[in-house]
Design a protein around this nucleic acid. Structure first.
Length: 422
DNA sequence: TCTGGGGTCCTAGGACCC
DNA sequence: TCTGGGGTCCTAGGACCC
């Protein structure tokens, strides 16, 4: 009898950011390496050697760097352009192997196969990724996405490259699920695991043994789906065609807190131009823009948030209009006496740009100007040219730009940053 | 001194209508 | 004293993911 069932394969790059950095710098091999978030704030990726030093995910770098045990750790600023490029190479590689592929995140790809073909394909994906891209990949196989996630985590924990949860007997599978804390199940975060624990549910097995109908009434449909997926019933299908973007946000901690109205306006204007560039690249337009200011929660006193929204008569994506509007909104939302640490510009309810009209429909110079500014920004960064005073450092020396002092070159996407072999 | 950024989906509750 | 019901739309907030 032909087995018509499907298997989900998850290909997950080991320490993606560190692995991408190591491709161009073999000196990083076998050393503890971490990659930092924007502003060089937190640790967002760790090599195996760094994990062994008990450096936690999300730990602030300024704390880690002072530990005696971490003296020899190499820290790098994140180079998203490099990681994004390797991410799309991995997706391409997977696409050549599988009839159906969903690039899920910057370091993960779901593939779907008829059940009998999954294991060979998984081995092949791992070999090709290592040989063709230089990226180490761990692969997990299961009947559903949630089970494939569990298989991948188990493969990583036990140091094997490929693992299929489908290959286990019923008893072995129960044993594996019983060894996994419920909070490690995909879709179950800190809040839900605390609530589940109150019901006596502390392992993946206990979650899988619940009645889905009860879970739906006691929790939500999201948790119900997770329970069914653990039981082997697929509820979260592969989505080959990503759903259209609903929102685009550009939100940053400022390199230095802003206290002046001009300062928040300058940052909002600059971020709006970044949003505009992304909108135009995706051929989207936005019917309203929101600016958010906040003081951040680590100082003394409660954090202060302010936000303001402005709608447009027709959806648009022009950099000049978005920048002017965002600057005005920021001025309006600003209140004296606060140290603003974070500014965000949000474009939501996005629509196709072709269906929208520009408020400046007849002047092609605006499109040309925007294109030129995008080129300058891409090549030289945001502080050289822009609308308003966004890019220019204030007279007081205030500088909102993020710190990124340890970024490697964008080897594969910039001609002038190509690696040189001598 | 120094603590990321960018998304999605779901639910509850209020406003409003007939 | 007694005080509809059902539907839709919108928003804020919660929870999760990487």
């Amino acid at each position: 009898m032909v087995d018509k069932r499907r298997s989900v394969v998850l290909a997950d790059v080991d320490s993606m950011y560190v692995s991408a950095e190591r491709i161009f710098n073999v000196g990083l091999n076998r050393r503890p390496v971490v990659v930092l978030s924007n502003n060089d704030g937190c640790v967002v990726a760790r090599s195996k050697e760094a994990k062994a030093l008990e450096i936690g995910m999300g730990e602030p770098w300024f704390k880690v760097r002072t530990r005696p045990s971490c003296r020899d750790v190499v820290a790098l600023s994140s180079n998203y352009e490099l990681y994004g490029d390797f991410s799309s190479r991995l997706a391409t590689l997977c696409g050549q192997l599988a009839p159906r592929v969903e690039p899920y995140s910057i370091d993960e790809c779901f593939l779907e196969f008829p059940a009998g073909e999954a294991l060979d394909a998984a081995v092949c994906a791992r070999e090709r990724s290592a040989r063709w891209l230089g990226l180490p990949v761990t692969v997990g196989i299961g009947r559903t996405k949630t089970l494939a996630k569990i298989a991948t985590n188990h493969a990583k924990d036990s140091g094997i490259g490929v693992f299929s949860i489908d290959a286990l007997s019923r008893a072995e599978r129960a044993e594996l699920l019983a060894s996994i804390p419920v909070g490690e199940v995909w879709g179950i975060g800190g809040r839900l695991s605390a609530r589940l624990a109150a019901h006596g549910v502390t392992t993946a097995k206990a979650l899988a043994d619940l009645d889905p109908g009860w879970v739906r009434r006691a929790y939500t449909i999201v948790v119900e789906r997770t329970v069914r997926e653990l039981q082997g019933v697929s509820c979260i299908p592969l989505t080959e065609q990503p759903a259209p973007r609903r929102s685009i946000m550009h939100c940053r901690h400022l390199g230095q807190p802003a206290t002046k109205q001009d300062e928040v306006a300058a940052a909002a204007s600059a971020f709006a131009q970044a949003v505009s560039a992304k909108l135009r690249r995706l051929d989207l337009a936005v019917p309203a823009v929101t600016v958010m200011l906040s003081t951040g929660g680590f100082g003394t006193g409660p954090p202060h948030h302010a936000q303001a929204t402005q709608g447009f008569p027709v959806p648009l994506n022009a950099a000049g209009q978005l920048a002017t509007t965002a600057a005005r909104l920021a001025r309006g939302a600003w209140r004296p006496g606060h140290r603003y640490k974070r500014v965000g510009v949000l474009a939501s309810d996005l629509v196709q740009a072709r269906r929208a009209q520009s408020l400046w429909p007849d002047d092609p110079r605006h499109d040309k100007l925007a294109a030129v500014l995008d080129t300058i920004t891409a090549r030289h960064g945001r502080d050289l040219a822009g609308y308003g005073r966004s890019g220019i450092r204030g007279p007081s020396g205030w500088d909102w730009r993020m710190r990124q002092e340890m970024r490697t070159p964008r080897f594969t996407t910039r001609w002038d940053e190509l690696p040189v072999v001598s």
